[in-house]
Design a protein around this nucleic acid. Structure first.
Lengths: 223, 223
DNA sequence: AGCTCCGCAATGCTGCTGCAACCTTGGCAG
DNA sequence: CTGCCAAGGTTGCAGCAGCATTGCGGAGCT
């Protein structure tokens, strides 16, 4: 792990470097914001430790600058200015955490570890088919990134088909996707939905077609 | 934004809920870890506020349990046990942040925002839609850079829609964005908010329109 | 007290949806 | 090749679920 320490008190910086090294952490140190920016461009740091009071300005201003440059490295602000409202200020500048001096190295380490833990995405991936993009979780359909407004039943049919693009979907599966077991249908309602869906996909120039597999079910294919 | 508050002091919990609601945050509250686990399975919270001392055990033990279940929601520990070593312990249990009681609601808000900014959420950028600019973290809305003053519930609806501009937002998602599970609505309250929001957007000449998708939800589009 | 916000409910309206009637297509047997 | 039938396709229609709008009164805030 590699950290960047931006801190103007030499002794503190030295002590921190030693302490962190015992945790297997490599620390780059600078006293100036200008240098710091250059360093972040040349190295991929796991986190940045930032003092507020620095010879060439308020440390917080460094954060937006970094973010604007597209660098998302977590930042922990270390400072003697530890009043609640100052902490609010620091966090709202974009800092990931804020730690008042003096502090235990143990606590700093814990906060670094906490900052590095990342929440992963558990989103269901979008489905691409023809010009369409389908978000099955939010029932969202776009054609060439303009939203497509579909009635609920047609939408459910489409999503069920899209989830198994290029593969046949049994008629019974489609019925299950659109109707719950309480709603029994005594007619060709499903066929009607397919028909209307086809028309809408055609009008929207969606780049896909719904094929019928006689006696089995349906299938969504790019055309 | 939706939080889960796990806290056994009724008064504190109630006060917090009220305070947070003024920041546009919907809060679900429970006093028991067992309930909390169930709630996290049923709802997608943006963050969890966790007390350490709870009737059915040490709150920290909840964190690994949650992580093992694959739930990575950021957790902020709220506690009177605020010695440095206790903070280390909390963070190493997997908490994302640790805040000693008593605290300012302002600081809690700032820490929540900071936690939500962490990768891969990155900084939640301002949303531009029509003439509007929306800061989803601070719930600021401007039209042509003059601030737009909206009632709380309408504001929450708007932000929820704006976060998914040009994409459908499920009705249930909107309800979750505006109400917590204790506030049951037995009428078309949400529809009423939409209607009033539309009127306000029109009056303000915001350059956006709220479309309905029958049986599914709503969608915010530039016009 | 005056104000806004908000939930509720009554009203009117839109267009989805199931149905059924009718048309088209594909498979198969003679 | 032709005729037949079943499966699927299309479309008008009526009913109604879902949505939009608005006034009212209570609650909360200044």
């Amino acid at each position: 792990m590699r950290l960047l320490l931006i801190e103007d008190e030499r002794e503190l910086a030295a002590a921190l470097s030693v302490a962190l090294s015992k945790h297997g952490i490599v620390t780059d140190h600078t006293m100036h914001l200008a240098d710091a920016f250059e360093l972040t461009r040349q190295n991929a740091y796991d986190a940045i430790l930032l003092d507020r009071r620095l010879p060439d300005g308020e440390g917080l201003t460094f954060i937006p600058k970094l973010r604007r440059a597209g660098i998302d490295t977590p930042i922990i602000v270390l400072t003697a200015r530890n009043e609640p409202l100052e902490r609010v200020e620091g966090l709202d500048f974009g800092a990931d955490d804020y730690l008042g001096k003096p502090f235990l190295v143990e606590e700093l380490m814990a906060r670094v570890r906490a900052v590095l833990r990342r929440p992963p995405n558990l989103a269901e991936p979008d489905i691409v088919a023809g010009r369409m993009m389908i978000d099955p979780l939010h029932l969202n359909v776009t054609v060439d990134s303009t939203p497509l407004d579909l009635p609920r039943r047609e939408l459910l049919v489409l999503v069920a088909l899209a989830k198994r693009k290029d593969k046949t979907v049994l008629r019974s599966t489609l019925e299950a996707a659109v109707y719950n077991y309480e709603e029994e249908i005594q007619s060709n309602a499903l066929d009607a939905h397919i028909s209307r869906l086809r028309k809408r996909l055609l009008d929207a120039n969606a780049g896909v077609a719904v094929h019928n597999i006689r006696g089995v079910g349906y299938l969504l294919k790019e055309e």
